[in-house]
Every structure is written in structure tokens, then in C-alpha cells.
Simulated assay, not measured.
Amino acid sequence: MSYQFSLDDVSYLTGAAAEIAEVGRLPLTGASYLADVRTARELLGERAGAVLETVLLRRRASAKVDDPDRWLFTDAAVQQATPAAVARRRAARFAGRDVHDVTCSVGVDLAALAEVAGRCLGSDLDPVRLAMAAHNCPGVALALADALHPVSRDAAVFADPGRRDAAGRRRWRPADFTPPLDELAQTYRGRDLAVKCAPGIDFADVPWAGEVEIVSLDGQVREACLWRGSFATVARRATVLRTSGPQWTITDAEPDDCPVRPPGEWIVDPDGAVVRAGLVRHYAARHGLGQLDERIAYLSGDAPPSGIRAFRILEHGHYSEKSLRAALRLLHVGRVEILVRGLDVDPNKLRPRLRLSGDAEVSVVLTRIGRTPTAFICSAERT
């Protein structure tokens, strides 16, 4: 059970930078934790719990916000917080607009919106999280309000509904979100609206969304954002972000005329945002690639896109475990990465059965072409 902050805790923490820094110097590892808790209690007495939790949450939030040591969080807020790069990318679509974040929590998305918006308002039902938002987002107007009872007019609306129950378990049905998605959409009918959701949401459950954008960061799919009103300019969009390197987007407004073709020199596994958004053919058409099979997301061609990790084909043929084992033995392979689409193969169970020994390292792509299970032995390269 995570620590439950009170308003009194928040008031104390906003002026306790020195105390938090002192506890922050403790290792707080599994081996030292009990001793470190005793030390914190000796230093801070009844305030130790709030400070310890704040230190631990800030450490966890280092992948979410740029400067976690100035932030106050709850456990749930850290779990649901958007990585800063994703929040800034989404906020850019609100640039110059008046915006109301109707589920602002501790203010992670609100801070990104406030950097680019005209006027900005944040509201939440939880007074503790709202007090934290006041600390985290100085100068931004805040209101204690239910997202389903609007306290703004005309402003574009952003929402990030809660997707965990009281025990911290994920909820997958949009009707079980807090607030429920359909009620949220109905409440703000006629308003430009953006709703952050988990990327696994079933698009059929949100027919009111004019545009669904899937966003990945450094190869990991992070969120789906549902856009409505003037925000929605295409039906589907994939946005691929990198902490370093090129960032790009692709939409269903682009051509999708790609062929099904025999294997070329390379296999390309499109970014997960492209696959989840259903834009594999559009991505292939953009880069002159073809599909190995019209129902499988692996693409092939003689020149992969630049700036990606692609797989140069060394050899390929009909897949069976026996034939793959023999081929890898001939190549003296001792380490193998296994990628699978379209076949019922568990890489973690297959790998030890291959009985590898040698110095070489390869990537194996297992898929089917038509009804034929096929194995590609490849060299993974950064293009």
C-alpha cells in the first residue's frame, strides 16, 4: 500500500527542500531500506513517511519529467504520468489555444500545456493532487472540480482519465475509467477535445474520436490520444519520437499502395506506433518497401529507411526447429535474438532448445509467407 498524502503533508513538503535532500542522500536499496527508514524517522519523526515517499517517487519519475527533484507526486500520478517528450509533443497541438486540463492530477501534462497555451486552467477532484499541482505548476490557474461538471467555456479540453482501481489494478474498459470515456465525450460535445488513453484501447469503443494518434518513444508505444473537433485532421496517425535522433509522423492520408513481394535484401519491422495505428502499408509505400505477406507487418526491400534498426538477410528458408538449429550451428551462432509474427512460437522457450554454441550473434525473424512458416537469419544493423 503506497503512502497516502494529506494536505498537511503537501504544505510541509513545499517548504522542506533541505529535509528531502538529506533523505535523498540515503541509498534506499533493498539491502539498506530498513536502516534508512530508521535514519529518516530519527531525523524527521512523523514527517519521515511523507519525505521518504517523495524521495522514492521522484526517483521513479526521472523517466517521466525533466526535473523530478522539484516535483511532488502521488504513487498513482507517477504511474500514469506522461513522459515529458510525449507530453510536449501532444501539447504542441494546443499551441496558442485556451486550454482546460480537466483531470490535471499533479500537473505533469498541465505543465507542458502551460508552456504553449494561451490561457491555461487545470482542475481535479482530489484536493491533495490539486495542491501538488499548485506547487508543480506555479502561476497556472487551478480549480477543484469534477471533470463531468464543466467549469470552463470555449477552451479546448484535455483529459487523462484514471485507468486504475483503488487497489492499483489496471482497468481496460473505457466505461470503467474515471471519468468514463463516453460520459466525458458527451459532457464536452461541441468542444475541441483530446483524451489520453492506453495504446491498447479498442478503437471501436470510441466512435466519437475523429482522430486516433498512437505515439511511441524510443521504440516503446506509450499512448493513444483521441482527438475530436478541429484537432482531428486525419482518421489515424502514428507519431514516432526519439530522445535523440529523427522524429516523424505518418497518417492514413498518405498513399498505401505497397506490393506483396518476395524477400529483398532487408527486413524492416515497423515501429510499434505504425503497427498499432494500422499504417504499415502507408509506411511501406512511403519508403518503397513491400509486404512479405499481406496479413503480416514485416516489410522487405533492398534499401531500408535511414535512422532505424533493420535486418540484413543472410539466409532464409522453410522454418522448422530442426532446420533452424542446424543452420545456426553451421554459422557458429552462440547468441540469437528471435522475433516472431504470425507463428505460434515463444522465443523464450525456443532459444534454449536451439542449443547454441559459438561466437557469432544473429537475429532470427520467424513468420509465415502465405501458409509457409519461414525463418530469416539476419544481421541487425543501424541504418
Results as ranks from 00 to 15, higher is better:
Ala232Asp: 06
Ala198Ile: 07
Pro259Asn: 09
Thr233Ala: 12
Lys196Ala: 05
Ser216Cys: 09
Cys225Asp: 09
Asp257Ala: 14
Asp252Gln: 03
Thr233His: 11
Gly210Val: 04
Ala209Asn: 02
Gly219Phe: 07
Ile250Asn: 00
Ala175Val: 14
Trp227Leu: 11
Val221Ile: 12
Val215Met: 02
Thr187Val: 10
Leu217Thr: 04
Ala175Ile: 11
Glu183Arg: 15
Arg228Ile: 10
Val215Gln: 02
Lys196Tyr: 03
Ile214Trp: 09
Thr187Tyr: 07
Trp227Ile: 04
Pro259Lys: 07
Glu254Gln: 14
Arg237Tyr: 10
Val240Thr: 06
Pro174Leu: 05
Glu254Ala: 15
Asp252Arg: 03
Gln220Ile: 15
Val206Phe: 03
Glu265His: 14
Ala175Met: 12
Val215Cys: 06
Phe203Gly: 11
Val260Trp: 00
Glu223Arg: 08
Asp202Val: 13
Thr233Val: 12
Asp257Val: 13
Asp192Val: 04
Asp252Trp: 04
Val212Met: 10
Ser216Glu: 07
Leu226Lys: 00
Ile201Lys: 02
Pro246Met: 09
Glu223Gln: 11
Phe203Lys: 12
Arg189Asp: 13
Pro207Glu: 04
Gly264Met: 05
Val206Gln: 02
Pro270Tyr: 10
Asp218Gln: 07
Asp256Gly: 13
Ala224Glu: 02
Trp227Gln: 04
Asp257Glu: 15
Asp202Pro: 10
Thr243Lys: 12
Glu183Ser: 15
Gly264Gln: 06
Gln247Pro: 13
Gly229Tyr: 02
Gly264Asn: 08
Ser230Met: 09
Pro179Gln: 04
Pro270Leu: 03
Asp256Val: 11
Leu241Val: 03
Gln247Trp: 14
Asp176Met: 09
Ile201His: 00
Leu241Gly: 02
Ala232Cys: 05
Arg237Ile: 08
Ala194Val: 06
Pro263Gly: 11
Glu223Asn: 07
Arg191Glu: 12
Gly245Thr: 09
Trp248Tyr: 10
Phe203Ile: 15
Arg189Leu: 12
Gly190Trp: 00
Ala198Cys: 10
Asp256Arg: 13
Pro199Ile: 05
Trp208Leu: 11
Pro180Ser: 06
Glu265Gln: 14
Val195Trp: 00
Trp266Arg: 06
Val240Asp: 00
Tyr188Val: 07
Ala198Phe: 10
Glu183Gln: 15
Gly219Ile: 08
Trp208Lys: 09
Pro262Met: 10
Gln247Lys: 14
